[in-house]
């Protein structure tokens, strides 16, 4: 007799959203409510990054890659579709090299013209910055933070997130961009730890801010 009313209530409920079913279906260790709350938050951020910002190679870390100790909260690492952060000094270098490339192309074109071949379209300044893997710190707007807790997060992360072995192989097999991954690791301009602060509001809006360890001069945006 009890079953019937609940069944009708369940049928009246709207169909769960993809995000809700994703969180519900995710395998969590239900040891405490706080860790699972933070875990579902991480899943929500991953969902947002994957489907709204087209990030790839997303991975939720529960242990620090530096110390292997459990993290205060799950962190996310992932690869944005284009470079998320370019240090102003690096930007100057990139523009300079792009300008050199453009001049070389123009020169080659002029030589071609001299030989009588058709001229291609005018070369434009093509700044190439390969995307880099980023750390993402999922937070809720209602949380309060302290400098100590922020420092704990920064102490636990590495300069560049470790590429998950299986996923990176998959990615390379799919895209064939082996050089891309190498470039990321060798970027000499990435000298300070940075974490993308992802803050979710109750209406599931997520805002992203880049946090860097120490004094880093602002970009010339």
């Amino acid at each position: 007799m009890n079953m019937k009313p609940t069944a009708t209530v369940a049928s009246l409920l709207p169909f769960p959203s993809p995000l809700q079913s994703l969180i519900r279906d995710s395998p969590t260790d239900h040891d405490s409510s706080t860790t699972s709350a933070l875990h579902s938050l991480a899943i929500q951020i991953v969902h947002n990054l994957q489907h709204q910002h087209f990030w790839t190679h997303l991975h939720i870390h529960t242990h620090s890659p530096v110390t292997n100790a459990p993290l205060p909260r799950p962190l996310i690492s992932g690869l944005p579709p284009q470079r998320l952060y370019i240090h102003p000094d690096e930007q100057i270098e990139l523009v300079k090299s792009a300008d050199r490339a453009r001049k070389a192309a123009a020169k080659a074109k002029a030589e071609k013209d001299a030989t009588g071949e058709d001229s291609a379209a005018a070369a434009s300044l093509d700044v190439k910055a390969a995307p880099e893997r980023e750390w993402v710190l999922p937070t809720r707007l209602s949380e309060k933070w302290t400098l100590r807790r922020l420092a704990e997060i920064f102490d636990a992360v590495s300069l560049v997130p470790p590429a998950p072995a299986t996923e990176s192989e998959e990615g390379n097999a799919l895209n064939g961009d082996v050089s891309d991954q190498n470039l990321v690791r060798e970027n000499p301009w990435r000298t300070t730890k940075r974490v993308v602060l992802a803050t979710a509001d109750t209406d599931s809006t997520v805002v992203y801010y880049i946090m860097q360890d120490g004094l880093v001069k602002p970009r010339q945006n």
Binding site: H53, L84, Y85, L147, L150, A151, F154, V196, L197, V207, Y208, Y209, I210, M211, Q212, D213, G214, L215, V216, P218, R219
Partner: peptide, 11 residues
Amino acid sequence: VRAFSIEWAGL
């Protein structure tokens, strides 16, 4: 002293 610089990510 430890300091953190914050900039908009542009996402």
